[in-house]
């Protein structure tokens, strides 16, 4: 589904991604872990070109994202949902409008269809009673669940999560992870950058360890956590587990 070839990213003189090559298949749940500054968020943001790569290719269903014109790129983004660390809900719109804005303005659904879809999604994330409230009236965990619902409203083929629980109070992490777990069980293709090792172990079909702009190790979670090979990964795991 997504094929990444020799991906490079520079910020001025800083070389953030130093040649990433990997493949994400339909239905996979890829969890990316690594120390801060390892380039894992940058890598994720390259996948929908919120960051413009400076070298290499990203193929989404065979189409090269890095060479695309803007109009095509936006069409691809419609099929890739993204959830941010700081939610980025639209504060001037009600929860329901947050969810329906994009599908309606892009002409994918009528307002009535989008409203119906929003109702279903709000039930799914357990926040039906918040439909007419504003983002600022919600807790962090609730905001993130709405952000997930907003992304799902576009019927994406893949969901990208950029540290979705890192900005949350500890007691709210669980509700967001629970929702992501449900999503995974339904077969959604997911790429998750996170520090939640428990989630990686239980939900991931593959775990990637990044350090210094490179993939140092990738493996299925059982093997990854019990039998790490790379010395940097061993050191990292000994600190976080």
């Amino acid at each position: 589904m997504i094929e990444v070839k020799e991906l490079h990213k520079h910020f001025g003189d800083l070389h953030i991604l130093k040649g990433i090559t990997t493949k994400i298949e339909q239905g996979e749940k890829v969890v990316i872990i690594g120390p801060s500054g390892s380039g894992k968020s940058t890598f994720l943001r390259c996948l929908n070109r919120l960051e413009q790569p400076t070298g290499g290719q990203i193929l989404f269903n065979g189409e090269d994202l890095t060479a695309m014109k803007d109009a095509q790129l936006y069409a691809v983004r419609e099929r890739m949902g993204m959830v941010f660390q700081h939610f980025h809900l639209f504060p001037h719109l009600t929860i329901k409008k947050n969810i329906t804005l994009a599908p309606v303005k892009l002409g994918l659904m009528t307002q009535a269809e989008a409203d119906a879809k929003a109702d279903v999604l709000l039930t799914k994330v357990g926040l039906s009673d918040k439909a007419d409230q504003y983002p600022n009236q919600l807790s962090g965990g609730q905001k993130q669940r709405i952000a997930i619902a907003r992304a799902l409203a576009m019927n994406p083929e893949v969901m990208l999560f950029d540290e979705p629980t890192s900005a949350l109070d500890p007691e709210m992490v669980g509700e967001v992870l629970e929702l992501m777990r449900e999503l995974a069980e339904e077969g959604m293709t997911m790429v998750v950058v996170t520090h939640e090792m428990g989630f990686a172990r239980e939900v991931a079909s593959r775990v990637i360890f990044m350090d210094d702009g490179k993939i140092m190790e990738e493996n299925e979670p059982q093997e990854f956590f019990t039998n790490p090979q790379n010395p940097r990964l061993k050191e990292f795991l000994s600190k976080v587990l």
Binding site: N48, L50, D70, Y74, A75, F84, H86, F90, H92
Partner: peptide, 30 residues
């Protein structure tokens, strides 16, 4: 307006003019 608002719009497939009209301008105007 926080850059995250532009990014949230872009990630949903809204192009720059649409993001500007529906997301940024109403907040900026306020």
């Amino acid at each position: 307006i926080d850059n995250g608002q532009f990014e949230a719009g872009a990630s949903l497939g809204l192009n720059y003019p649409r993001t500007m009209i529906y997301i940024i301008m109403p907040q900026a105007f306020r």
